[in-house]
């Protein structure tokens, strides 16, 4: 019996028979449907995915006409990681002229709103210079990164030290103080970059610290879009569900903890988001077919619930992309194609 060459979530090669492939697809899809309380895949979807993984092509792409817009996170940082001798403005032109990027993103090496605050003037200068020489929409991006507000890196007691000690009230109070501080920083830095001409602001890895992180981002977005009507903000998430680290935080009457992408996008829209980026985490103990079927179920539900454009996150370890710094194109291109075509996405 011929086997289908694919990979595990950590990128390791694996061969699956047709029966194993079908079972992984069904198990992955049903796991997402069960967790998210959303519809699983249809027989037509299974046929599409079976054919996708049975193909021998090393690289696949969407059908002509199905192309979508690409936005990026950590835009100018990713070239730096490869030890290329370039500055950020050069990095932007490399993305634009060589990679065929639909949008470009300027960011600071710390990639968090808090450290941008004291150097915002320098960042504005760089952004304004970049705007003179580039053509594609230029976003400025950073993470809320609430961990930077806890001791010893910030002023507030660390809830993750308080919680295991059973100090729940103290942990929650600390989170509430952190939310206030972080909203101020996100609004300050984002407003400055908007006023300097950024075509959009990217809130990246939202929810990394759980529901306080999500709430801080929603509140910051609300303040910004009230002050600057029409301001474009992309909200990219950190995980598939909002971790309840506080557990009792609400936005517009909805409890944030435990929300899956189709619930998250509704609140992002209410707060003023222009683009929403759902995340589905890759399980490294499972195959890519399992992960992809699971991702399609979650992201499709999100795309159906959304009125605004949805750009699914498809980087290392999310969106059925293996947890590997430079993922193999066989599985990456399959995930890219399937997510766009089965989830009716607007971008990645």
């Amino acid at each position: 019996m011929s086997k289908n060459y694919t990979r595990m979530g950590d990128g390791s090669p694996v061969e699956l028979t047709d029966a194993e492939l079908r079972k992984d697809l069904e198990d992955g899809a049903n796991d997402a449907a069960d967790r998210g309380k959303v519809p699983s895949l249809t027989e037509e979807d299974y046929k599409y995915l079976m054919e996708l993984f049975q193909r021998k092509d090393r690289f696949v792409g969407v059908d002509v006409g199905n192309e979508v817009v690409l936005t990026y996170d950590e835009g100018t940082l990713k070239l730096k990681r490869h030890a290329l001798l370039e500055d950020r403005l050069q990095a932007l032109t490399i993305y634009e002229r060589l990679f065929g990027a639909d949008t470009i993103e300027l960011c600071h090496v710390d990639y968090s709103y808090k450290p941008v605050k004291p150097i915002v003037g320098y960042e504005q200068g760089s952004l304004e210079m970049a705007l003179l020489m580039t053509h594609a929409p230029l976003l400025y991006g950073a993470m809320p990164n609430l961990g930077l507000y806890t001791q010893p890196d910030g002023p507030c007691p660390n809830p993750m030290e308080l919680l295991p000690q059973g100090k729940i009230k103290e942990a929650r109070e600390s989170y509430e103080a952190i939310i206030k501080d972080s909203v101020k920083d996100i609004v300050f830095a984002s407003a400055a970059m908007h006023e300097s001409g950024a075509d959009g602001i990217n809130f990246d890895t939202v929810g990394a610290s759980g529901d306080p992180d999500f709430l801080a981002s929603l509140l910051a977005m609300e303040q910004l879009t009230t002050k600057y009507p029409g301001m474009a903000i992309e909200m990219g998430m950190a995980g598939e569900f909002v971790l309840g680290t506080h557990g009792d935080l609400y936005y517009d009457g909805t409890r944030l903890a435990g929300l899956y992408p189709h619930g998250q996008v509704v609140l992002a829209e209410k707060a003023g988001a222009t683009i929403f980026g759902p995340v589905v985490n890759t399980n490294t103990d499972r195959s890519i077919p399992w992960n992809l079927a699971r991702t399609v179920v979650f992201v499709r539900a999100c795309s159906k619930a959304a009125k605004i454009p949805v750009h699914a996150n498809m980087g290392m370890g999310v969106g059925a992309v293996p947890v590997w710094d430079y993922p193999p194109v066989d599985v990456l291109s399959r995930a890219s194609k399937a997510l766009v075509e089965l989830c009716d996405l607007d971008g990645l």
Binding site: R35, L163, G166, G210, F241, L243, G244, T245, H246, G258
Partner: peptide
């Protein structure tokens, strides 16, 4: 699975 939150988990642990 996201149906139980950290403070609740901590209270159960207690």
């Amino acid at each position: 699975r996201g149906t139980v939150f950290l403070p609740e988990l901590m209270e159960s642990a207690d």
